[in-house]
């Protein structure tokens, strides 16, 4: 598609979508949100770039191959599971290394741990697989039109 309006708006919207996707990813910790929705939002950013500028630019914007991104994400999630197994006793158990529990039961520190790692893994898998499928479909359509 060759539209000045779309490509100008995309230049504004794509970074916004990416930042928002990270926000949704982190928000999913205790509120609606999470890795899956965040990943979809990020994928939308790349799909928008693809619509405005073509698959080549979208691939360049992603920097690494979608499949590689997905497999890094999968590794993150497996690692989060093993982390729980190795230090907590059960596979996928939540581990909070940065949280201290005071004697009176209140907690202090940053709520980041194996569950966040798992969610980041999901986020990466979703970005990688959705953009991967989408770009492959776009390539296929472009080839069949030639």
């Amino acid at each position: 598609m060759n539209s000045l309006v779309l490509s100008t708006v995309t230049r504004l919207l794509a970074p916004l979508l990416l930042v928002f996707s990270v926000f949704v990813l982190l928000r999913g910790h205790n509120e609606p949100g999470g890795g899956f929705i965040g990943g979809l939002l990020a994928a939308i950013a790349f799909i928008l770039i693809n619509k405005a500028e073509g698959t080549r630019t979208a691939r360049r914007a992603l920097r690494i191959l979608p499949l590689t991104l997905a497999s890094i994400g999968l590794s993150c999630s497996i690692a989060a599971g093993l982390w729980g197994l190795l230090s907590g006793g059960a596979f996928l158990q939540g581990i909070w290394p940065l949280i201290d529990i005071q004697p009176d039961g209140s907690k202090s520190g940053i709520a980041a741990g194996s569950i966040l790692l798992f969610d980041i893994g999901v986020y990466l898998v979703v970005i990688g697989s959705v953009t991967g499928i989408y770009l492959a479909l776009e390539d296929g359509i472009a080839r069949s039109m030639d």
Partner: peptide, 18 residues
């Protein structure tokens, strides 16, 4: 867990090394 985690991790590595 090994019968599930082992092939899954191998799949992830195989994607990287494809």
């Amino acid at each position: 867990l090994a019968p599930v985690v082992l092939p899954l991790a191998t799949a992830a590595i195989c994607v990287l090394l494809r």
